[in-house]
Amino acid sequence: MCGRFVMTYPVDDMAQLFEAVPSNDLPDRERFNICPTDPVAVVTSEEDARRYRTMRWGFLPHWYKSPSDGPLLINARAETIATKPAFQMACRQRRCLIPATGFYEWTRDADGTRLPWYVHSETETPLVFAGIWQSWTRGADQFVTCAIVTCAAGQGMSDIHHREPVTLAPEDWALWLGEAGRGAALLMRAAPEGRLQAYRVDPKVNANTASGPELILPHAA
Score class of each variant (00 low, 15 high):
residue 108 R to M: 08
residue 93 Q to V: 07
residue 92 R to P: 00
residue 137 T to K: 00
residue 91 C to D: 03
residue 79 E to T: 02
residue 95 R to N: 09
residue 173 W to S: 10
residue 169 A to H: 02
residue 156 G to E: 05
residue 109 D to T: 07
residue 169 A to V: 08
residue 169 A to Q: 03
residue 139 G to D: 08
residue 104 Y to W: 06
residue 115 L to F: 04
residue 54 T to A: 15
residue 166 V to Y: 01
residue 74 I to M: 06
residue 116 P to W: 05
residue 100 A to V: 04
residue 138 R to V: 10
residue 147 A to R: 01
residue 125 T to Q: 11
residue 138 R to D: 10
residue 103 F to S: 13
residue 65 K to A: 14
residue 80 T to A: 09
residue 80 T to C: 11
residue 116 P to M: 07
residue 60 L to E: 05
residue 84 K to I: 02
residue 65 K to M: 15
residue 92 R to T: 00
residue 119 V to E: 04
residue 127 L to H: 03
residue 92 R to H: 00
residue 126 P to W: 08
residue 108 R to D: 03
residue 89 M to Q: 10
residue 66 S to H: 01
residue 134 Q to F: 02
residue 107 T to A: 08
residue 131 G to N: 08
residue 77 R to V: 01
residue 170 P to E: 03
residue 69 D to R: 08
residue 51 R to G: 13
residue 86 A to S: 13
residue 138 R to H: 04
residue 120 H to F: 12
residue 95 R to L: 12
residue 161 H to K: 12
residue 71 P to Q: 10
residue 44 T to I: 15
residue 161 H to S: 14
residue 158 S to I: 08
residue 56 R to G: 02
residue 133 W to S: 12
residue 129 F to H: 04
residue 56 R to E: 12
residue 55 M to Y: 05
residue 42 V to F: 12
residue 150 T to W: 07
residue 63 W to N: 14
residue 138 R to K: 06
residue 98 I to N: 01
residue 156 G to S: 09
residue 152 A to G: 11
residue 160 I to T: 11
residue 129 F to I: 14
residue 119 V to H: 06
residue 136 W to P: 00
residue 104 Y to Q: 12
residue 139 G to Y: 05
residue 149 V to M: 06
residue 75 N to D: 08
residue 93 Q to D: 02
residue 123 T to W: 09
